[in-house]
Nucleic acid binder design. Structure first.
Lengths: 215, 215
DNA sequence: TCATTTCCTGACCGTATGGTCAACGTGAAG
DNA sequence: CTTCACGTTGACCATACGGTCAGGAAATGA
């Protein structure tokens, strides 16, 4: 039974399970609050309430507000970088860039809070993840630029500036998360439906792939 | 002489001049601080220091922090909407959309703080400008959608979804302001030069206009 | 059962914040 | 000179915030 299984899991839960579970609950709550209020507007009390825990318990797992925030941003960055995989093994821009657009649009829909926290962090000058920008992101970007250059040399797309293509991809795909509220308002106040998300992905892919001469 | 003219202007300045000048200084400082720290992270003391005025003086001109913030957002929104003019009298997408891209990219470069405040406001659910989204922005959007539809009907561009085209335009052009720090980091830590801004505008215009079949 | 580690939390503290206010300065009009 | 509206500001206040801590509860191993 589910109930029995839950009770059993709770009763036999290892210490690490309690820790892991609480950290997860806190991180989820923090992601939402940081996204909705910004770092400065978020309060530990708000996060605690959303997590259903006393405020003091948050400080047991995360020393400071900054520490909690840093973990939230790191978590997002990893999800965000995973979409890079699709770029690497692709034979051409249609699969590589088309797949990347699909993946990033899916992430925007699935993790809108995370995307907003990331955007907010970068907009404020990346005070806590500057090192990530200068190392991981820079390396990732260089790799992708080389892939695009190869496609250009192979005649698989027009010779566009890879850097500005990447910016356009990042901007557009994340726009559906970061400016989701504006899109929703212009959509009659209702969130995009499954069908509308499919249309959005198709539209973006079509415009971009034609824009770089890949179709 | 300039000095004499200044002294004269100060000595003969009307009360309204003092008010206007101080409001301008405060609004400029507020725009910068709100952009860099977010609404929650910004403090009246910080804004006062940046404006070179005592904190109590700010409350003489702006009743509350929210009031000051609202004025900053309104100011940005008006600049932002002015770029719409270019859309209207254009004979086709090359002039209309191309000119719009140029204008929005210039705004991103000239008013990066304003763009960030706007982005932050929308990301947090537009708590103070929801009415603008539902009235002015919605009307503006409908008008532009009709213009694009006309161009499509006239065979001047491919039949793309006008809504997603607008989102792509907004996202990409504002990205150069909102994510300017990230772009700067990926540019070796230096801001884009005049030449690089020209290249950026050209790249974006080329990809978008080709993407919609206008060139 | 007992000892030990981990987990939990109400109460508390120093600080910083948004906002107020009374007193003062200033310059134009009568 | 006097008046008076406008502009200025140091000092102050109530609140809310991030963070601490002592002491207790609960889980684990011997």
């Amino acid at each position: 039974m589910t109930a029995d299984a839950q009770i059993s899991r709770i009763k036999s839960g290892k210490r690490t399970d309690i820790r892991r579970e609480n950290e997860r609950v806190i991180l989820d709550a923090a992601e939402k609050v940081f996204a909705e209020a910004g770092f400065g507007g978020a309060t530990m009390q708000l996060i605690a309430d959303m997590a259903g825990l006393p405020k003091a318990n948050l400080h047991y797992y995360f020393a400071t507000k900054e520490d909690l925030y840093r973990k939230v941003v790191q978590q997002i960055f990893e999800i965000w970088l995973d979409a890079a995989m699709l770029f690497d093994d692709a034979p051409g821009p249609v699969e590589g860039i088309g797949g990347y657009i699909d993946a990033k649009m899916d992430i925007s829909r699935r993790y809108p809070h995370g995307s907003k926290v990331w955007a907010s962090e970068v907009m404020h000058g990346a005070p806590v993840i500057q090192d990530y920008l200068e190392t991981t992101l820079r390396d990732w970007t260089e790799g992708r630029i080389n892939a695009i250059k190869r496609w250009i040399d192979d005649g698989k797309m027009h010779p566009v500036d890879p850097r500005h293509l990447l910016y356009l991809l990042w901007a557009t795909t994340q726009h559906y998360a970061d400016f989701g509220h504006q899109i929703q308002t212009l959509n009659g106040g209702r969130p995009l439906s499954d069908r509308q998300w499919q249309e959005a992905k198709a539209s973006v892919k079509e415009m971009v792939l034609r824009g770089i001469g890949a179709i």
